[in-house]
């Protein structure tokens, strides 16, 4: 058997060293790249959540299930019909589902409103003339959520009882929390 020469050994060590350094550099590159990817993915997830929050807020504000109407005229924008809210509240109590019962009656309806409102929690808070207990209109918050984006929108609350000649307006805000 022929023994390797010193020169050959040195060349071999040199080659291994070069390969080692090369792979270390590639590894550094990959590490750096994966870090960068992770950060940019997080940023993207935040952007997606913010967009989704805005979309759900817009949809909530224009829900015919909540919107104030004026006969054949244009609906009153940024206005919540408290008579409709009362119906939603009652349905929740009847069903024993504490929050957002109307929107979650049965699997079919629940899936429908999930497509519309996703993993969110929608609360109506009256602030003027009196601050009342917040009313939860829809609650489908994710149990293991990692991020939450709240959006607030000032709305008028229209109420009209049979013995009032005209409707009365109060003020409050809709809080839409979207979870991811």
């Amino acid at each position: 058997m022929k023994h390797p020469t010193r020169k050959g050994q040195a060349q071999m060590t040199e080659t291994i060293a070069i390969i080692f350094i090369f792979f270390v550099l590639v590894l550094f590159g990959l590490l750096f790249y994966s870090r960068y990817q992770k950060v940019s993915l997080q940023q993207e997830a935040e952007e997606i959540l913010a967009t989704k929050a805005m979309e759900i807020t817009v949809r909530t504000l224009f829900l015919p299930e909540l919107l104030c109407t004026k006969g054949e005229a244009e609906p009153e924008e940024n206005c919540v019909d408290m008579a409709k809210v009362e119906v939603l509240k009652e349905r929740s109590e009847e069903d024993g589902t504490k929050y957002g019962g109307f929107f979650r009656e049965g699997k079919r309806k629940e899936a429908y409103y999930f497509d519309l409102l996703s993993n969110s929690r929608i609360t109506l808070q009256e602030v003027f003339p009196e601050a009342e207990e917040p009313i939860v209109l829809y609650d489908n918050a994710k149990k293991d959520w990692t991020k939450m984006e709240p959006t607030y929108f000032v709305v008028s609350l229209k109420d009209w009882e049979p013995d009032w000649p005209e409707p009365r307006y109060r003020f409050g805000y809709l809080k839409v929390e979207v979870y991811s």
Partner: peptide, 26 residues
């Protein structure tokens, strides 16, 4: 499909309004 759900809310509203008109004048 949406009509079914929106009509359900209005049905509840009609019920409420009707309960509010309990006296003779209503």
């Amino acid at each position: 499909r949406r009509l079914q759900y929106v009509a359900a809310v209005y049905e509840g509203k009609a019920q409420q309004l009707s309960e509010g008109y309990q006296d003779i004048s209503g």
